[in-house]
């Protein structure tokens, strides 16, 4: 069975985010970029399915500027078989990403599409669900366990209050949560091998999708910062302050 994994290039999660002084966005100049952590988990899950003999081929796709090829190569080094780069320098919003991925799904006909539940830049948590709706597939969002069983996949989901397991007909879309797996690191020989794996390049126009953003960002600001309060000497003073000064207990 073929598995399609979508990955996004985002600011590295260890980098301290700084808002631009003109409030037009976040400063990404000379900032370390990396694969979105939830997408790493998606790649890892696909590779594990292949190691179990469930998946036969892993295709990894990324949308964005030329530099996204770094993240596709990373996925190839981790075990994906080939890459598709949908190249654009324009801003791509969730609905457009879902439409682009839908075209790829129609061409590639994967049995399973795995994405991260959200990217750590825009924090939308939308693309997987939108792709599932547009392709008429079921969705296992916020997955913490994935078990393929014949023509179905059972997905255990992290929901408010606990866990919920659903059975989805294949083909299906899965979005990963943090505890699905712990991604491996790519070995040097695999990084070298990944350079020779096939990587197709196409444009949104090649896929028949016109980019037409519906949302415009008017401004981006730094969050209001909290002021550090006071240090108390002991527990008795803490309880006194909470009761008599803050009046919250």
């Amino acid at each position: 069975m073929k598995v399609l994994v979508a990955v996004k290039r985002v600011i590295d999660y260890n980098v301290k985010v700084r808002v631009k002084p003109d409030n037009t966005g976040v400063d990404l100049a000379n900032v370390k970029m990396a694969m979105n952590p939830f997408c790493e988990i998606a790649v890892e899950e696909a590779v594990r399915l292949k190691e179990k003999g469930v998946a036969s081929e892993i295709v990894v796709v990324s949308i964005g500027p030329k530099a996204c090829q770094e993240q596709i190569r990373t996925a190839l080094a981790l075990g994906a078989d080939r890459g598709i780069h949908i190249e654009t320098d324009e801003e791509v919003q969730s609905l457009e990403a879902a439409k682009l991925l839908k075209s790829v799904v129609e061409k590639e006909e994967p049995k399973l599409v795995i994405l991260g539940k959200q990217s750590i830049d825009s924090d939308n948590n939308q693309t997987g669900q939108m792709l599932a709706a547009l392709t008429g597939m079921g969705q296992g969002t916020f997955a913490s366990e994935v078990v393929v069983d014949g023509e179905n996949v059972n997905v255990t989901r992290e929901v408010d209050g606990g866990l919920m397991t659903v059975a989805l007909k294949l083909p299906a879309v899965i979005t990963t949560d943090l505890r699905l797996n712990e991604p491996r690191y790519a070995s040097l020989p695999n990084i070298m091998k990944a350079k020779k794996k096939p990587l197709d390049n196409m444009s949104p126009a090649d896929l028949g999708v016109e980019l037409a953003p519906r949302l415009s960002t008017l401004k981006v600001e730094a969050p209001a910062s909290r002021q550090a309060g006071v240090k108390v000497a002991d527990v008795a003073e803490l309880v006194d302050k909470l009761k008599n000064e803050a009046k919250v207990i």
Partner: peptide, 10 residues
């Protein structure tokens, strides 16, 4: 956005 490290008006 960015885990609450920036606040966007959309």
């Amino acid at each position: 956005i960015y885990a609450g490290n920036a606040i966007a008006t959309v």
